[in-house]
């Protein structure tokens, strides 16, 4: 006896202790107890000196086999326990994924800006350049060069804010066009977004301050067909491919012929609803071929060049786009309104 029994006992001890081990630390203690420098298997190896020379290698091999077996068993147990322990930790760390948290607040530009960006992207994509000009403007550019002579009804104080006899708050962004026409040579392809002013009292659909986007193209052989295509591109980009454009005869002092532009009602898509008064069309903007007299006044040869111009009311299309019923909301700045846009 002695050694062989001892080995057998160790086997049994390991098996039983392994079964009882329930933590990585006790497993580690077991490993030390068995395989450590002062462990039982090491002690057994040391005690080999008492064996005969012929038994020694045989026995050494048996002990090494035990060492490999014990190591394998301990490693296997350790792996299992580690997996178990991680599983338990993860379970303990479980959170209520439905518990609410505050979102990081990300702001937005004003609805007017959001729509303006769409419009500007559409026209810059067609080769239009954005040009801006002063809001406090000379009468000369706001009226005179646009074929709205002195004493024209459009100049009435009912409609126009005056600073003095020669200076007004621009009533449209067309004076920017006039400034460009007097300083540049054709071809011209510009849009002029900006604030404009009219002496209207504030209500749901009127405001003394609002925004326009006016466009101007001057080149040789520009026709009303070019104008229609340009505006169709705009309408389709903003409201969808199924939107049609309809021109109706109209009158503006700086264009001839002039047209009022209707789009397929964006609410009912042309079927007829309250918004379009059952006509299937909504009036969106005014446009026309630049009056040759305006070209001549601005120093552009109307025999050689022709052009078109259009004017879009930004608030109007923003209200259509988002279904805003009252324009005052856009200038009040209530967060409950502003937080709705994206």
């Amino acid at each position: 006896m002695g050694m062989l029994d001892e080995l057998k006992r160790l086997d049994q001890e390991l098996d039983s202790e392994l079964k009882q081990t329930d933590s990585l630390s006790s497993l580690e203690a077991l490993r030390v107890k068995m395989l450590g420098k002062k462990g039982q298997l090491t002690a057994l190896l040391r005690s080999m000196g008492s064996l005969s020379a012929e038994d020694r290698p045989k026995f050494g091999q048996l002990i090494n086999e035990r060492r490999e077996r014990f190591t394998a068993l301990l490693d296997e147990k350790q792996k299992k326990m580690q997996a178990l322990e991680q599983e338990m930790r993860l379970k303990a760390e479980q959170v209520d994924v439905t518990e609410p948290r505050r979102l990081p607040e990300v702001g937005t530009p004003h609805p007017n800006t959001l729509v303006l960006n769409e419009v500007v992207d559409c026209f810059t994509g067609l080769g239009f350049e954005v040009v801006e000009g002063p809001e406090v403007e000379l009468d000369h550019y706001n009226f005179e060069l646009l074929n709205i002579p002195k004493n024209h009804p459009a100049r009435d104080a009912q409609d126009t804010f005056y600073i003095d006899d020669n200076v007004v708050l621009r009533t449209h962004t067309s004076p920017v066009q006039a400034r460009i026409m007097t300083t540049r040579k054709p071809p011209i392809r510009i849009i002029c977004p900006g604030r404009v002013y009219r002496a209207d009292e504030v209500d749901a659909t009127h405001s003394p301050v609002f925004h326009q986007i006016e466009g101007l193209v001057i080149d040789e052989n520009i026709s009303m067909g070019d104008l229609k295509a340009t505006l169709a591109a705009f309408a389709n980009r903003l409201y969808g491919k199924d939107i049609d454009v309809r021109f109706r005869p109209s009158f503006f002092p700086f264009t001839e012929p002039s047209a009022e532009v209707d789009l397929t009602c964006v609410s009912c898509r042309g079927k007829g609803c309250r918004m379009c008064k059952n006509t299937g069309w909504i009036e969106v903007l005014g446009c026309g071929m630049v009056n040759p007299r305006v070209l001549d006044m601005c120093g552009i040869d109307s025999k050689k060049y022709s052009g078109f111009a259009f004017g879009i009311g930004l608030e109007r299309i923003t209200m259509l786009r988002y279904g805003i019923q009252d324009m005052r909301l856009m200038y009040e700045g209530d967060m409950r309104f502003l937080r709705q846009f994206r």
């Binding site: 239009f128 954005v130 801006e132 009303m224 070019d226 229609k228 309809r246 021109f247 109706r248």
Partner: peptide, 20 residues
């Protein structure tokens, strides 16, 4: 006015946003 066709603008132009 319905007779007016849609004819795309001809010629390339260098459009874009203003500095401001």
């Amino acid at each position: 006015y319905d007779l007016i066709p849609t004819t795309a603008l001809r010629g390339a132009a260098n459009g874009g946003r203003s500095a401001a």
